[in-house]
C-alpha cells in the first residue's frame, strides 16, 4: 500500500456540469434566438390539436378567401379552410418529416460509416463508391425521378431525403472511425478480447456522435425546405393534408384574391429554417470550436 496515502486526498470528481453547454449555447445571441424559435415552432406543432381554432380540413364555404377576421385570424383559402389551423398542422408535417428522416439518416449513416471505417478494406472501398455515387445526384432531381416512378407520398419524401443525406453522415463517421481505429484505447479493448461489434458500439460511437449531431441539426432546415419544395410542386403530401409547401402553392394561385395564404405558408417556413440554422451553428460553436468560421 505504498502509494495509498498520496492519493487519498484527491477526493471527488464531480461530473462536469451537464448544463454548462446549454449555458454556453444561450450566451450566444444567435443560439438564444434559434432556441426560442425552435421551441416555439416545435411546441405549436405538438399542440396543434389544442391551439388550432379549426380542423385543418373543415370547410367554411361562406367565408372563402377571406382576409383576417376575428373568426379566421389569418383568413381562409379557396375552400374556406382556416389558414392559421392549416399552417399549424403544416408545421407538424414539416417537423415530423425532418425529424424522422434526419434521425434515420443519422443512424444509418453512423452505422455504415463505422462499418466502412472499421471493417475490411474492400467493404470500405465499396461503401465509399456507393456514397460518392449517391452524392452525385442533385436531391430535387433525384426526388422528382423517384416520385415519378413510385408516386407522391410523405413516405417517399422521407425515403428520398434519407437516401440522399446518408452519405454525408457516413463520410464523417467513417473518417472519425479511421482516426480512432489505431488509437491505443481501441487496441487495448481488442487486447482484452472485445469483439468488433462491442468496440464499435461501446467505444467508437460515443467518440464520433458529436459532429454527427451538429450535422443533423443543420440538416433539419434543409430537409424542411425540400419537403416544402416538393409539396409546392404537388409531389409531397396528398391533399387535404396541410403542408407549408401546399399552402404556398394554393396561395400562389390565389394571390390576387388574398396574400394571407402566402404569408401563412412562407413566414413559418422562413422562421423555422432560420431558427434551426442558428441553433445548428451555435451548437457547432459549442461542441466543436475548431470548425468555427472566422
Amino acid at each position: 500500500m505504498e502509494a495509498k496515502k498520496s492519493f487519498s486526498d484527491s477526493s471527488d470528481f464531480r461530473r462536469e456540469s451537464r448544463f454548462s453547454n446549454l449555458v454556453q449555447l444561450v450566451k450566444n445571441p444567435l443560439g438564444l434566438i434559434g432556441l426560442i424559435i425552435v421551441i416555439a415552432i416545435v411546441s405549436s406543432a405538438i399542440c396543434a390539436d389544442w391551439i388550432a381554432p379549426y380542423d385543418y380540413k373543415a370547410f367554411d364555404i361562406k367565408a372563402r378567401l377571406s382576409g383576417p377576421t376575428w373568426d379566421h385570424l389569418l383568413g381562409t383559402d379557396n375552400l374556406g379552410r382556416d389558414t392559421l389551423s392549416r399552417s399549424l398542422y403544416g408545421g407538424r408535417v414539416a417537423l415530423s418529416v425532418a425529424l424522422i428522416s434526419v434521425s434515420l439518416s443519422l443512424v444509418i449513416g453512423l452505422f455504415l460509416g463505422m462499418l466502412a471505417g472499421y471493417g475490411p478494406r474492400r467493404l470500405d472501398s465499396l461503401l465509399v463508391l456507393i456514397f460518392d455515387s449517391i452524392r452525385a445526384f442533385p436531391t430535387i432531381m433525384f426526388a422528382l425521378a423517384v416520385i415519378t416512378i413510385v408516386g407522391p407520398s410523405l413516405n417517399t419524401v422521407i425515403a428520398v431525403v434519407v437516401i440522399t443525406t446518408v452519405p454525408g453522415y457516413a463520410r464523417i463517421a467513417r473518417t472519425q472511425t479511421l482516426a480512432l481505429k489505431h488509437t491505443e484505447f481501441i487496441l487495448a479493448e481488442r487486447s482484452l478480447g472485445a469483439k468488433p461489434i462491442r468496440v464499435m458500439f461501446s467505444h467508437i460511437v460515443p467518440n464520433v456522435i458529436a459532429p454527427l449531431l451538429i450535422l443533423a441539426s443543420m440538416d433539419i432546415p434543409v430537409v424542411i425546405t425540400i419537403e416544402a419544395g416538393l409539396s409546392f410542386l404537388g409531389l409531397g403530401v396528398k391533399p387535404p393534408t396541410a403542408s407549408w409547401g401546399s399552402i404556398l402553392n394554393l396561395g400562389y394561385s390565389f394571390i390576387r384574391d388574398t396574400p394571407w395564404m402566402v404569408i401563412a405558408g412562407g413566414v413559418p417556413l422562413i422562421l423555422t429554417t432560420l431558427g434551426f440554422t442558428f441553433l445548428g451553428e451555435a451548437l457547432r460553436d459549442v461542441f466543436d470550436p475548431k470548425l468555427k468560421k472566422d
Binding site: E184, F185, L187, A188, E189, L192, G193, A194, H203, N207
Partner: peptide, 30 residues
C-alpha cells in the same frame, strides 16, 4: 483472459468517454 497487455500511453489507452469504474469492469463485461 490469461494474457493481458498494458499499452504505452497511460491516458490514451483508456476509452475517453468511460468512467474509471466502467473501464476496470470492462474485462468482465467483455
Amino acid at each position: 483472459k490469461d494474457i493481458s497487455m498494458m499499452f504505452q500511453d497511460p491516458v490514451a489507452s483508456l476509452s475517453p468517454r468511460k468512467t474509471v469504474g466502467s473501464l476496470i469492469l470492462e474485462p468482465f463485461k467483455i
